[in-house]
Design a binder for these strands. Structure first.
Lengths: 225, 225
DNA sequence: ACGATTATTCAGTGAATTCTTAATTGTGGC
DNA sequence: GCCACAATTAAGAATTCACTGAATAATCGT
């Protein structure tokens, strides 16, 4: 990174001040990735347009193919990123030593808040399910890995049952799907629900009420007899 | 599948020699409607192709525009039809005099089975929510009507509370969304869930188990204290 | 300094896509 | 039988689409 290099062109040697490299593959790739995430989440795979992606990424269509191969592979990378972001956030929760009831409450609240904060995750998953899971199946990056929450729920259930606060014999997978379903559906179907049920489902008050509700539902379903 | 019928043409009583008329606007419209339902459900609005619709309907692109105006209006009619089919089926249940617990069980089972039998309904709704509900908002046919189940649930809850089998003060809207969520999510996300959780979620055994599970969850959440 | 490699820019290409103009054909009313 | 109109064909305009070949420019190892 020695300066110097005074050549014929007036390309002034950039002093110590912020020198933004004219070419930065990683940054370009990142901008395309971000733009693609937004585009696929907004329009689904079929409705997404590569020219809108490259435009928003302030680059050219060609770069999309240079860095990602084609539209489908780009979608796959975006989807993988969405899963990895969620799982990383789930890992960070660390409920290994939490009180079972408090821990489960926290897990439910986290899941709900993640959906609220990341509607693009939900839209990407919906697009992937519309495509019958072809991209997760082909993905080498997410493979057959799965949410850390499955084993965390298993652990909480086991400890809670030993303490006598939860029923024994609760299926962790079913519980996981239940928690996901109650949050996911509400966010995913917010527009049709809002239209037909009238009320503003996404105001702060309504959101808090829904979290309280799903927490009650889940806890009631596994409470010790 | 109920298409949007504007025309009140009464089909001529067919003479003994059942002759198929060379032109039958209603039948053509119906074929386009059916093909469009399938296409929109398979690929979403953005991924749907009008030439695939007209081809499957065994007619020409032009007829789609002749009968429905454009792709978007056709989607709207398809979506309206999907809602009306569901609501009509819900009406037919008639739980007005059912025992509250048995009635609610039946309502849950019906909702679940409807989703299982009509994945296209779920896909259409997902596409509509991807579009932020623009079509339901513009629809004159479904307007601000809503599922008959809201008032049926209200009724069951009121009677169940009076009989002392349900808590009082349960919000019918929340209960409705809860029941819908638990069935909808499972079917909507079947491909990603199946991939990451391994098991075959849609085998008969798994389906029955899930219905039993959501029934337990819902009933536990409203059981009298 | 210089060649090799990587990254970016540019200018398409052919196929696909929605929708239209317009000719043609069948149907029911009289 | 004949007409007005509804319904169907047919052909294509206009545009958009995903994707590519190739020239150019920056960067790096040596």
């Amino acid at each position: 990174m020695t300066p110097g290099r005074k050549s014929r062109t007036v390309r002034k040697a950039v002093p110590a001040r912020s020198r933004k490299p004219k070419r930065d593959a990683e940054a370009t790739r990142e901008r395309i990735f971000a733009a693609a995430t937004r585009e696929f989440a907004s329009h689904g795979f079929g409705g997404a347009r590569v020219d809108r992606i490259s435009k928003r990424a302030k680059t050219f269509d060609r770069m999309l193919y240079y860095h990602f191969g084609n539209k489908e592979q780009l979608f796959r990378v975006v989807l993988e990123g969405a899963y990895e972001d969620l799982w990383a956030a789930e890992e960070r929760l660390d409920l290994a030593r939490a009180d079972p009831v408090a821990g489960l409450r926290e897990l439910i609240a986290f899941t709900w808040q993640y959906y609220v904060d990341h509607p693009e995750f939900i839209r990407l998953l919906n697009s992937e399910n519309l495509q019958q899971g072809r991209n997760v199946r082909r993905s080498t990056r997410v493979g057959k890995l799965s949410s850390p929450f499955i084993r965390i729920i298993s652990d909480l259930l086991a400890r809670g049952a030993k303490e006598g606060v939860f029923r024994s014999g609760v299926d962790p997978l079913k519980l996981y799907i239940t928690i996901a379903a109650l949050g996911y559906f509400y966010v995913s179907n917010r527009y049709t629900l809002t239209h037909f049920l009238g009320a503003d489902l996404m105001g702060e008050k309504a959101r808090k009420a829904w979290l309280a509700h799903i927490t009650d539902v889940v806890l009631a379903s596994i409470a010790a007899a």
